[in-house]
């Protein structure tokens, strides 16, 4: 027997053994006898496989990065535009809500006193001189606004029309020191005159009876006396009292009800019922001087 024949025989035997082992494994597997062996080998392998997969994924992501980054950046840009649009929309809605609130307040105020005839006007400017407290409205004589008409907001009295043009009107605010308004206190019913303080001054109610028991926090209303303003429009609230025994009258410092820095819309009261003072036009005969 030569060497070649021996080697060939070994190969065939090996082949036959391998086929035999494979068939044996196949038979054992189909009968379920290899489950334990599988578990023994498979568990550590799956752990290694998991670890490898993660690393491979990272590697792939790293190589595929620039493309994904671009996509992400595009998405971020898109979202940013969307956010901006939504913010703008939100601001617009807030603005509308603010205007709605303002209109609702004005409407409620108008409903409280339906006997007045009113005209809505927008505030379009402020006085150019800091010494004067006045505002400019977008309604003038052509709209029915005339000098002397009272102006109010949803919160209270604003002032009085001072000067008009065809399409605008200047209103002297109640805080200006040339403004004086006949007023009455809500609780104590004491009457006096509310004067504006102007630049650096305070609004105060003068000529209050020294005997009147006035409380801090009392609301000040227009009294309607004199016929320039309708009665019962809120002017402000008493924040301080000055009582000097030497004086004949006391004085109350008044905080205005209206925030004049944030005025947007106001009512010009074009017609209102004044207090009837015709009774004083005729002097009773017994008071007439003897002829």
């Amino acid at each position: 027997m030569n060497l070649d024949e021996t080697q060939q025989r070994i190969r065939w035997v090996t082949f036959a053994v391998l086929i035999g082992v494979t068939i044996l494994l196949l038979v054992l597997d189909s009968s379920g006898s290899l489950d334990n062996a599988f578990n023994f080998f498979e568990d550590p392998l799956t752990t290694v496989m998991g670890w490898t997969t993660t690393r491979v994924d990272t590697l792939i992501e790293t190589f595929a990065g620039p493309e994904d980054l671009q996509a992400a950046q595009a998405e971020i840009e898109q979202l940013r535009v969307q956010v901006q649009a939504l913010q703008r929309e939100n601001e617009e809605l807030r603005e509308i809500e603010g205007e709605f609130q303002l209109m609702q307040d004005l409407f409620n105020r108008a409903r409280e006193s339906p006997e007045f005839r009113r005209l809505t006007a927008s505030v379009i400017g402020y006085d150019t001189s800091p010494l004067f407290r006045s505002i400019i409205l977008d309604k003038g004589t052509e709209d029915g606004v005339f000098v002397g008409m009272p102006v109010e907001s949803a919160r209270g009295l604003v002032g009085q029309v001072f000067r008009t043009t065809n399409h605008s009107a200047m209103v002297i605010l109640i805080t200006d020191n040339i403004s004086s308004i006949p007023a009455r206190l809500g609780d104590s019913r004491a009457t006096g005159i509310v004067r504006g303080g102007g630049l650096g001054g305070v609004m105060a109610m003068d000529w209050l009876d020294l005997e009147a028991q006035i409380n801090i926090g009392e609301v000040v209303y227009t009294s309607g006396l004199g016929g320039r303003f309708p009665e019962d429009i809120a002017i402000g609230r008493v924040t301080d009292l000055e009582r000097r025994e030497a004086d004949l009258f006391q004085r109350a410092v008044v905080q205005p009800a209206v925030d004049f820095d944030s005025l947007e819309m106001v009512f010009v009261i074009t017609d209102f019922r004044t207090i009837d003072t015709t009774i004083f036009d005729t002097i009773p005969e017994d008071l007439l001087p003897a002829p």
């Binding site: 000098v147 004086s180 006949p182 005159i193 004199g226 320039r228």
Partner: peptide, 10 residues
């Protein structure tokens, strides 16, 4: 502007 000043006393 007399309408602004109902009381000259002030």
């Amino acid at each position: 502007y007399e309408f602004l000043d109902i009381s000259n006393i002030a």
